[in-house]
Design a binder for these strands. Structure first.
Lengths: 287, 287
DNA sequence: TAGTGGTCTAGACCACTCA
DNA sequence: GAGTGGTCTAGACCACTAG
């Protein structure tokens, strides 16, 4: 109840708008979330503005701090509010959803045309001598699809877990190489990605400065075409959250696909886990 | 600590696997989630099996019930665990992700070819005489993109909020008709969808027994083609949750697109909010 | 050092389901 | 009525940030 206007713009009178209904069917934390969201929506709070502290909100609304935290956690997962440990909560900047025309251009090429910068960093490269084939894949491979993430070292989660189903390269039997890499667009995390290619085609030392398929083309003269893209939605695991700088439970666009050569032979499988608040993938539908 | 084996299969010895680490950097609820998930992953718990009650889990792991609930809430959002109020928690059945080859076929046609049944129900139809045009859209239209959902009557959220950006039909000025409808696949909720079409083209009484564009074709002889599909990921709002029978915060695949006639004139805008645990949309990429 | 968010506890009451 | 999950509280301690 003390004067909170010290440097930060005075927020609207939180809690004054309407008292929480304890008897109605709607939980208090949902009403609270809606009330905070409405003030952001109405423009009473602009992006970057500080919210009152959790303790202040709890006092203003006459609820416990845990109830406030539950409402805020929902807004944080949705990307509406951003929290900084030890600092405060703020209205999140509206992140622009970049429209990617996901044709045959790589992300680097597509974004460069729009004037955006793309940076890639290879997290790990691993050769697997006995890759997954139908029927022999361990149960861990389907774990990701079930929303299960590894509890131990995150680095051990390989392509198979990300892909979520048996795979193999019929035209290129033998060992494969798995890549895991991060992508930034305009210096903000964009996606954590997995790729697997036959070892016979794997570029010896891909460092992410160009696209993986550009590297394959340079090394072997083989051109890889995208032939299908499959889209779904998943939640960010703690692993995703750490890499992508989003809270656990944030929405991710799951993009899976296979690249093939001109003869239709599969050359690579790719999985992208893309920040749902940043990406909108556009695909032209042929008539 | 009493004997819980009464009719339900005796679950594995929860809590015996490893004690919670209180000093490590990983929060206890994340360790707990991982521990429960591992037992599901390992096959110790099969789909449909009952988990111990929250109180029993709290006692077995030596944590408070709230910590258990936090771990379970994460698994519920991810679709790994299903809870029934007053009954218990269960390992969720692995929902199959249907692959839709999202070409020019409607969902009804595409799924019928795979032997699945599709049912549609129109929730509401509304004529809007002054539809959103660039620059005149109220701030509420962008609310959905920011993860804000209406606190009042859910039925008032119209197409503009779902679409998230200004729109208009340059070739068909004048009033538009908004539809909101639900779709089931194999009698399980699939998506909640929004469509807006010029009033001049709107089928007088579409009831969902056929596809909206089939109805338009029958009424006016105008064939609508899909020309682009845009994919993103969002979280289920309480509104989505109620319709789609998923928990709040579950991942949804956001599919937006425009259908045009053979001359390229926009005839309709569509938004689908699709259960991420059920759908995987496939699109062929032209070379 | 003060204030903030992050975590966890013990306990309470309610709504719901089922024997 | 017993047992379950759903909600909420009051309080505690910690980690982090900043003046």
């Amino acid at each position: 109840m003390s004067d909170p206007s010290v440097g930060q713009p005075q927020p609207v009178a939180f809690g004054a708008s309407r008292p929480m209904l304890r008897a109605g069917g709607v939980p208090v934390w949902q009403q609270l979330r809606a009330d905070i969201a409405r003030q952001i929506e109405d423009g009473a709070l602009a992006p970057g503005d500080a919210l009152p502290s959790e303790a202040a909100l709890a006092a203003a609304y006459g609820v416990s701090r845990l109830t406030v935290r539950r409402a805020l956690a929902d807004l944080v997962r949705a990307g509406t509010v951003r929290t900084e440990h030890g600092v405060g909560s703020f209205v999140a900047a509206q992140t622009l959803r970049h429209r990617i025309d996901d044709g045959q251009l790589s992300l680097l090429e597509s974004m460069a045309k729009q004037g955006h910068t793309v940076r890639q960093r290879v997290l790990d490269v691993r050769q697997v001598d006995d890759p997954g084939v139908p029927g022999t894949l361990p149960p861990a491979a389907t774990a990701e699809a079930a929303g299960i993430w590894p509890s131990g070292d995150p680095a051990v989660a390989g392509f198979a877990a990300a892909w979520g189903e048996p795979y193999r390269f019929t035209s290129f039997p033998g060992p494969v190489v798995e890549y895991r890499y991060l992508r930034w667009v305009d210096e903000l995390p964009w996606s954590v990605s997995f790729a697997v290619v036959p070892a016979a085609l794997a570029p010896p030392s891909w460092d992410g400065t160009n696209s993986l398929f550009a590297a394959i083309f340079e090394a072997h003269g083989v051109k890889a075409w995208r032939d299908e893209r499959r889209f779904s939605a998943v939640l960010a695991t703690p692993d995703d959250a750490a890499w992508l700088e989003v809270p656990v439970g944030a929405p991710l666009l799951l993009l899976r696909g296979t690249n093939s050569d001109s003869a239709g032979r599969a050359l690579a499988h790719i999985v992208h886990r893309i920040r749902g608040d940043r990406a909108e993938y556009g695909v032209r539908v042929p008539r």
